[in-house]
Design a protein around this nucleic acid. Sequence first.
DNA 1: CTTACGGCCTGTACGC
DNA 2: TGCGTACAGGCCGTAA
Length: 278
Amino acid sequence: MPELPEVETVRRGIAPVLEGRRLHRVLQRRDDLRIPFPARFSARLQGQQVTAVARRAKYLTIALDGGETLLVHLGMSGRFVIQPGGAGGNRFEAHDHVVLDTDAGDRLVFNDPRRFGLMTLVPTSDLAAAPQLAGLGPEPLSDEFTGEVLAAALKGRKTTLKAALLDQKVVAGLGNIYVSEALHRAGLSPKRLAGSVGAARAHRLAAAIRAVLMDAVAAGGSSLKDYVQADGTLGYFQHSFRVYDRADHPCPTKGCGGTVRHMVQNGRSTYYCPRCQK
DNA sequence: CTTACGGCCTGTACGC
DNA sequence: TGCGTACAGGCCGTAA
């Protein structure tokens, strides 16, 4: 599920359950996800009060009053399920890996079949220096992300524009879906050399990235197979895809008349309109 | 430094 | 029905 809009949607869903609450009991049901859990993981969480639930790129950052921050990545298939009042008892589903019970009696279950996600603990004082966060590019919905900044990040790059936008050092939070969507909105070809994007195109592209992410966040993200929101409701941005997973459909650009095509770049699907994306 | 690729995992959809 | 294959929203280590 998770690109920036889906992670932001998860953040908004779990924040009311966690913020200000104390973690009354923490259950860790296996030794690792993509990486091992840190030493004494559940003990370090237990008894801590959650001071803030924030997001950086596709990471959730759950700050605790003892000075550590729980860093969570959802990988490809990670999700949080809220069980109000601890509904569920001692019964768990397959791939329920971590269980957080709050002092309000609510339960948050982290479930991740593919285990590409991760959970670790980092010092809150050096959060930005955490290895997972240190190299990330600008937040696309922040004021720091401008056409000038994007142009500078793309300058001199020899790879395709599609591959460059998937690089989290260029801009943080885009994934395979929203890169295709943003490039279509900007009228730029995914095959274009990243370094060929100058000031004017970078300005257009930055605006398109912001717009598609804001629209998707407003829709609660995209739900393909899984549901995204922790309360089980569905995001609906998938109904607004202009090109992603829409091969052979008419291009939605007004007056274009082209047809959406599928291709594979660096082993990943790209969808685009050869007619209006140059 | 940059870039491309394989691997990590499980679930699902599809063709035979 | 069963079985094999390909593919899926991400990221990292390695090699060139």
